[in-house]
Design a protein around this nucleic acid. Structure first.
Length: 271
DNA sequence: AGACAGACCTGTGAGC
DNA sequence: TGCTCACAGGTCTGTC
């Protein structure tokens, strides 16, 4: 599920319910996530107040008076606010119960998600310190991509999905942005010129911003039972459209595995 | 350093 | 209906 727009949509959905609340208990029903949930975490969280819910890359950061939770949704995780006390479902592994009576419930069928705790400044956490710039920030620009890519022989798609290059561009949006910029995903990163990297940056920013905006339309439902953003398929130009006509030129959209991930592209428009 | 394969785990849909 | 297989939106780790 989650690429950056989904994580940001989640953040906006849950923040109003969490900010300023005191944590009553962390109820762990299944600790075996990507990394096991720290057995002592509940004791540390209990009674702390939530100051803010931030995001860095695809990490949600729940800042409390004692430290910060780093919450990653992995490949299939989702967070939802529960207001009616309903019983947990299959794969509802964690509840963060608040003094308001609401709870933040984590569901993750594949258990690739994880929850970390740090009492040091979050920006210094080992998982965050190696990350590249946020895609919607000014430090993500064509010049940076151009300079970092010199001499790289791996595909431009793998380069774009490398979190040290820029964070938050997952498999779907990598295909989409390369299509929009007219760059073939298999082209070696070091063989893409400066102007084309400028175009790629514009495409990444436009696509992610649009996806976040569309995710925002479902925010209102977040506290309800069916709160799940369902925007994507409509606005994707090539992802998942193998064999269908390219929206720009009509040639059949191709699919190849690049860097072990399905990649969709137009063999005519992208060079 | 950089490139690549493999690992984690479960669900779903296609094809037989 | 029930089996097997391929595939799924992330990211860390180990090896060359």
């Amino acid at each position: 599920m989650p690429e950056l727009p989904e994580v940001e949509t989640t953040r906006r959905g849950i923040a109003p319910f969490l900010t300023g609340e005191t944590i009553r208990v962390l109820d762990v029903r299944e600790a075996r996530l990507r990394w096991p949930v720290d057995p002592g975490l509940n004791a540390r969280l209990r009674g702390t107040r939530i100051e803010a819910v931030d995001r860095r890359a695809k990490y949600l950061i729940v800042r409390t008076t004692r430290g910060s939770l780093l919450w990653h949704l992995g490949m299939s995780g989702s967070l939802r606010i529960i207001t009616d006390g309903r019983a947990p479902d299959r794969h509802d592994h964690l509840d963060l119960v608040l003094d308001s009576g609401h709870c933040l419930r984590f569901n993750d069928p594949r258990r690739f998600g994880f929850l970390l705790w740090t009492e040091a400044p979050v920006a210094e956490h080992p998982r965050l310190v190696t990350l590249g710039p946020e895609p919607l920030s000014d430090t993500f620009n064509g010049d940076r991509l151009y300079r970092r890519s010199r001499g790289r022989r791996a595909s431009v798609k793998a380069f774009l999905m490398d979190a040290a290059t820029v964070v938050g561009v997952g498999n779907i949006y990598a295909s989409e942005a390369l299509f929009e910029a007219g760059i073939h995903p298999r082209r070696p990163a070091g063989r893409v010129g400066r102007a084309r990297y400028e175009a790629l940056v514009v495409a990444v920013k436009r696509i992610l911003a649009a996806a976040i905006e569309q995710g925002g339309t479902t925010l209102r439902d977040f506290s309800d039972s069916e709160g799940r953003p369902g925007y994507f398929s409509q606005s994707l130009a090539v992802y998942g459209h193998e064999g269908e006509p390219c929206p720009a030129c009509g040639a059949p959209v191709g699919r190849e595995v690049i860097g072990q991930r399905s990649t969709f592209f137009c063999p005519r428009c992208q060079i």
